[in-house]
């Protein structure tokens, strides 16, 4: 097995890191899309993923076929994201980003506790896609299938999204709304439709993330995806909130760093991994508060 000399990282760790980075990048897109239109940071995004994971575990426990499980996962996540939009986002639309962040923080805890009430603290196993954890051997290097699937699926989603945002009418409207919501509205962009589309796409991405994360961690507990969301949020702010590409890159970067350091550091150091990651995030925020991957003079649209 060949290795990267500097960090003594083997290719397997590298592939896993790319896989994790891809999953985080998708979450970052999901959070970034809604932020673009609504200026709302959805702290409860991870709980959408959690709900999807429970749907998968539910189907897997009953021995339903994989396809049915995935369909159920999509159904649950989409219904929940539409409900979240209707019940929480819509009444909060006029408030400051800070208030909305606190509100979605509350929603996250609410959903997590509902899962705790409903399914108990012990967790459920989602095993139907466990075969994706098997390695394949490519020129002498073992790489887990999920790392390949996650990377491929993410690239596919991002390409589709680029096409959707760049080549379709609704995509044009969404970009216009992200740039300046009220002007876009004056020019005939229908607010409800744009927000609905953003919420739906973000929900679809959450469902895909749920499928891939349950392969990575088959044990679904009420705090499933909570840690990931915190990291992705940090990554999104790190990359730059005001447009999708920096946010996605930020999400990828933090997932990649997390996967790489987690695999490369010895155990007595890797327990401090969250500290390293967040220290790095804070450092970047101090040096470039507008985001790491944004151009100069292009700052997030928010005050205080």
């Amino acid at each position: 097995m060949s290795s990267l000399a500097i960090l003594s990282v083997d290719w397997q760790t590298l592939a896993d890191a790319v896989g994790l980075g891809s999953i985080y990048a998708l979450m970052a897109v999901g959070i970034g899309l809604v932020f673009g239109v609504l200026r709302l940071v959805n702290f409860a995004y991870g709980q959408l993923v959690m709900a999807g994971a429970y749907a998968l575990a539910f189907a897997s426990e009953r021995g339903w076929p994989v396809g049915v499980g995935i369909a159920l996962c999509f159904g649950v996540v989409l219904v929940l994201s539409l409900l979240m939009d209707r019940l929480v986002f819509r009444p909060l639309r006029a408030h400051s980003p800070a208030v909305m962040l606190v509100a979605t923080f509350a929603v996250a805890f609410l959903l997590q506790s509902i899962a705790l009430l409903w399914f108990g603290p012990l967790g459920k196993i989602s095993a139907s896609l466990a075969s994706l954890n098997q390695p394949v051997t490519i020129s002498g290097i073992d790489i887990r299938k999920i790392a390949i699937v996650a990377t491929g699926l993410t690239v596919l989603c991002l390409v589709l999204l680029v096409v959707l945002l760049g080549r379709t009418n609704v995509g044009l409207h969404m970009r216009a709304a992200a740039m300046d919501f009220s002007t876009a509205q004056l020019l005939g962009v229908r607010a409800g439709r744009v927000i609905g589309a953003a919420v739906l796409i973000s929900g679809v991405l959450a469902a895909i993330v749920a499928v891939m994360l349950t392969v990575q961690t088959p044990l679904v507990t009420p705090d499933f995806a909570l840690r990931d969301t915190i990291l992705v949020l940090a990554g999104v702010v790190l990359g730059g909130m005001n447009s999708l590409v920096p946010a996605t890159l930020g999400g990828f970067a933090i997932g990649f760093a997390s996967g790489l350091l987690g695999g490369a550091l010895p155990t007595d150091k890797s327990q401090y991994l969250p500290s390293f990651l967040f220290a790095a995030v804070i450092l970047v925020l101090l040096i470039r508060p507008g985001g790491l991957f944004t151009r100069e003079g292009q700052r997030a649209v928010e005050r205080v």
Binding site: L101, A234, Q271, P274, V281, L285, A300
Partner: peptide
């Protein structure tokens, strides 16, 4: 020096680091 969302995330980072250490 930070405010708004950046402050929210950075202070969250402080919580994570403190808890972790």
């Amino acid at each position: 020096r930070l405010s708004g969302l950046a402050a929210g995330i950075a202070t969250f980072g402080v919580l994570e680091i403190t808890h972790n250490v």
